[in-house]
Simulated assay, not measured.
Amino acid sequence: MRNVEARVLGRFRMGPAGGPPWRLESGRAESLLGLLVLNRDRTHERGRLAGLLWPESSQAQARTNLRHLLHTLRGAVPDLEDVLEVTARTVAWRADAHCALDVDAFESALERARSLPAAERIPALTEAVAAYTGELLADHDDEWVVPERERLRARHLDALEELGTLTHRSGDHRAAVGHLERLVTEDPVRESGHRELMRVHAALGDRARAVRTYHACVAVLERELGVAPSTSTRAVYADLLSAHPAAPHGPAPAPAATDDRTPSATADARDTPP
C-alpha cells in the first residue's frame, strides 16, 4: 500500500486510494498524520514532533506519548511502514508513498489560475474553491495547525472574491451571487465582498437586495468591529439610491487588493453611514 488519499480540509479522512478510510483511535493520531502529510518533504526529529503535538507536557512525557501513539497506529493502519519511516530518532512520511492530498489540489488550482490572464481564470478558480471543503483539520485545535489554517483560509477567501468579480464581469451574475454570498458568510467583515455583491444585485435589477446587502454590511461592521462602513462602501450605496446609478450593468472593476478586507482596516477614516 503506497498510494494514499488524504483529506485534511474540513473533517480528516485518510486511507488507501480507492479503499475505506483508516479507523484511527484518537484525534491525536489524525493530528500526527496530518502534520506528517502536510510536511512530507521533511524528516521530523522525535523530540520536536512530540513537542508540537503535546506542547503542555514535559519533554519526557511528550516523547512517551509519541511512542505510544506510533504503537497504536501500527495496529490501526495496515502496513504502516509503507507510509511512514520511523526510526529511533526520527519520523517522516516515506518519499515513495504517494499521497493525493486535497490541499495540493486546492493550491495547484490556484497556481494554475495565477498563470492565466484574468479572463481565463474562472475554471481554475472554480476548481480551487470546490476543493476547499472546510478549514484545515477543522476538528482539531493544535497550536501547530493555526498558522497554516489561517494561510489557507486567506487564500480561499481571496479566490472566492476574485471568482465572484470575474463571473460578474463575464455576465454570469447568478454564479457571482453564489460565490460572493459564500464569501460574506465566511468573512462577514470583508467590505469589498459586500460591495461587489451589491453591484451584482444591481446588475440583476434587484435594487432591494442590493440595499439589504448594504444594511447587512452596516450591521455586521457595527456588531463585530464597532465601526461604520468605509467611504468606498458608502459610495456604492449612494449609487444605488441615485436616480441614475453609476453604470450598474457595466463591468465590475478588476480584482485588486483593498484596505478593508480584514479587521485591520479599521484604522482607515470612516464616516457615519447614511
Rank of each mutant, 00 (worst) to 15 (best):
E5G: 10
V8G: 03
F12G: 00
A17M: 13
G18D: 08
G19H: 13
P21C: 04
V37A: 04
T43Y: 08
G47E: 14
L49A: 01
L52A: 12
L53R: 08
P55W: 04
Q59S: 14
Q61L: 14
A62N: 09
L70P: 01
H71Y: 14
D82T: 13
L84H: 00
L101P: 07
D102R: 03
A105Q: 14
F106H: 04
E107C: 13
A109C: 10
E111K: 15
L116Y: 12
E120N: 15
P123W: 09
D139H: 07
D139F: 00
H140V: 01
W144M: 03
V145M: 05
E150F: 06
R151Y: 01
R155A: 13
R155T: 03
A159S: 13
A159L: 03
A159K: 00
E162M: 09
H168Y: 15
G171S: 06
H173D: 12
E186W: 08
D187T: 06
G193E: 02
R195T: 00
R199E: 05
R199G: 02
A203T: 02
V211R: 10
C217V: 00
A219T: 14
A219P: 05
V220L: 08
P229I: 02
V236R: 07
L240E: 01
A246H: 15
P248S: 10
P248H: 10
G250L: 03
P251Q: 04
P274G: 14
